[in-house]
């Protein structure tokens, strides 16, 4: 016998599977032409960065002093920096940190933000009020300031900045997810699961979480672009990644000094790569956001 509540649950499950199938079958539908281009470019950059030891033509730290501040040549395709290090190799290695650092920021922020949001949405009442208020206070501090505060306390390093920025991005994730979770919470399939005796935690993780997942992903990707910018900026200021590690923000900084000495290649290359990465991430985030909205 099929009770109304199991039907309702089945419907929810089918809807969810449709969404899943849609994701696998037609990423193209969700991303569009420009989104697919952006995704491919990003994939190429990410693969190159992941296999940097294999892909990079030189050791990023090897100083070829004779090539110092030379422009593009067959030996150094993008030239060499002030210390004679191969710029292309440093770009490839730098992309690693430029992708991994912000990736970690968003991962932490997304996990913490989603948990907070689900807790607020499910419990409601005073817990919701307290969490919402906490998020409001976090909102009152501009993102990059958290990174700077962390550095002020624990000193300049990548890990410090990542932790600081992760806190800054929690409210951005949590606000969106809380709204979505509140909407889902009032859906009939949730009451059905409730009537069947599932526990609150169970419902949250087996019913609500899968249904808000597209929104979580979209918000995470959109925030990633801003995190890349913030982290690169902190490194540029000399407060994040420390030399001699290759990092795109740092490369813009050292390239800036070279610009004043008449050799703009390093700054242009590193700046362009940052813009390209952020552009790809933002485009994908935009597409995912609008497709997550239209699924509702």
């Amino acid at each position: 016998m099929t009770t109304p509540s199991t039907t309702s649950l089945a419907v929810a499950r089918v809807a969810r599977e449709r969404r899943g199938a849609g994701l696998a079958r037609a990423a193209g539908d969700r991303l569009g032409v420009v989104g697919c281009i952006a995704a491919s470019v990003l994939l190429v950059i990410a693969l190159a960065a992941a296999f940097a030891p294999v892909v990079a033509p030189y050791d990023p730290d090897y100083p070829d002093l004779l090539a110092s501040l030379s422009g593009p040549s067959p030996a150094h395709l993008l030239g060499a920096d002030a210390l004679g290090r191969d710029i292309l190799s440093r770009l490839i290695w730098g992309a690693r940190i430029t992708l991994a650092g912000p990736g970690l920021v968003i991962l932490i922020a997304t996990v913490v933000g989603t948990l907070l949001a689900l807790l607020a949405a499910w419990r409601g009442g005073r817990i919701d009020t307290a969490i919402s208020w906490l998020l409001d206070v976090l909102f009152a501090v501009p993102g990059i300031v958290f990174g700077l505060i962390a550095v002020a306390i624990w000193g300049p390093s990548l890990i410090t900045v990542v932790c600081g920025l992760a806190i800054a991005y929690v409210p951005y994730v949590a606000r969106v997810v809380r709204g979505a979770a509140l909407r889902e919470r009032n859906m009939p399939y949730v009451s059905a699961a409730w009537l069947q005796g599932q526990s609150a935690t169970g419902i949250t993780f087996t019913q609500i979480l899968p249904n808000v997942q597209p929104i979580v992903v979209a918000q995470a990707v959109s925030s990633l672009g801003f995190a890349v910018i913030d982290l690169a900026a902190v490194s540029f200021l000399g407060l994040g990644v420390q030399p001699p590690t290759a990092d795109l923000g740092l490369m813009v900084k050292s390239g800036f000094d070279s610009v004043l000495r008449g050799q703009p290649t390093e700054a242009i290359a590193a700046g362009t790569l940052i813009v390209l990465i952020v552009w790809c991430v933002t485009v994908i985030g935009d597409r995912l956001t609008s497709s997550a909205r239209s699924m509702r």
């Binding site: 690169a232 004043l260 700046g271 552009w279």
Partner: peptide, 28 residues
């Protein structure tokens, strides 16, 4: 879309290179 993806320090460096160092229209 491109403007949104460009960090302020990259634009700053570009502006200095072109308008201050290159063309000399503005102080660095």
């Amino acid at each position: 879309a491109i403007g949104l993806s460009t960090p302020s320090f990259v634009i700053g460096v570009a502006l200095i290179s072109v308008f201050a160092v290159g063309l000399g229209w503005f102080p660095t």
